[in-house]
Amino acid sequence: MILEIEGLNKSFRSPVKAAGLSGQVRSLVKREYREIRAVRDVSFSVPRGEMLAFIGPNGAGKSTTIKLITGILYPDSGSISVLGMDPHRQRKALSLRIGTVFGQKSQLWYHLPARDSFDLLGSIYNLSAAETARRVAELTQVFELKDFLDQPVRKLSLGQRIRCEIAASLIHSPEILFLDEPSIGLDVVVKARIRDLIKRLNEESGITVFLTSHDAGDIEKLCRRVIVINEGTAVWDGSVKEMKYSLLNRRIIDVKLEEELNLDLEGVTVLKSRPYSAKLEADLNRVDMREVMEALIRHNTIQDINVSTIPMEEVIAHIYENRTAGGVGTWEA
């Protein structure tokens, strides 16, 4: 296991701003604090080489967890071991073995060619000039940077820049890569390209990838496993595919008909109905797909039918919206 977390808890004290003038004056003299339990009893472990999606709505405890893992914060209780190290005690030593890409903030020097930033990062990570040169050559090949490596970063397209960003975070051959929103702002084609590169990187170098993203595509295309954090609790830890089925086990059925829809079945909601077509949603926890099909065929003349799963985005939205419900138990399969 490259990362082991056991019973992690972390609370913050946040000053409470009292309402009204008298409240404000009072809070100047005596501050009141509210305890926020940012992370509650989170446990998980990650084997070497895994690509893991770590998702949750804003303010759910994601970044607190990452700060705990990287040693910026230390837990109130519970234990963390990253690459066999205690991140808080050995933050600097750990930093030499992890890499980070923060999609919204560049680590490249804007007016210099990416090659210069790579060289600088080589110095920062204590690599010799020869080692840096060797790594840059390798990464140039993997990420196909040759054509623009010597152009100032400001002249690169966003896609090219992100490729350079990811390469930059790999100069020191980290064992764990934290990717925070790597595909933000990219167009569909470039997104797919970046995902391919990350996938290849993981397959070829065996690097462990910790992906934080709100992009359903990133999660589905890259990761087999997903951990969902909500209100400080890990509400889901399992395969991406399974999450889709067990948390929101519904199908969307589009039918083309010769007359108006005639269907009344428990567990099936009619989303849209027009004279010659309809859109239904079947909740497979309440009704069998076979029953739905039989009822449809018995009462209607069907021209065409299309059954699809709920898109990942909706699954995620569903999880996020249920934030007050809390716990996996809410979505019993």
Binding site: W109, H111, L112, N126, P152
Partner: peptide
């Protein structure tokens, strides 16, 4: 202090980066 090299490099590259604004 071996790490001085690091800060010297940071200084040097920022210097070059900022030359663009000259």
């Amino acid at each position: 202090m071996g790490s001085l090299r690091k800060y010297a490099a940071i200084f040097r590259y920022t210097f070059r980066d900022q030359l663009a604004y000259m």
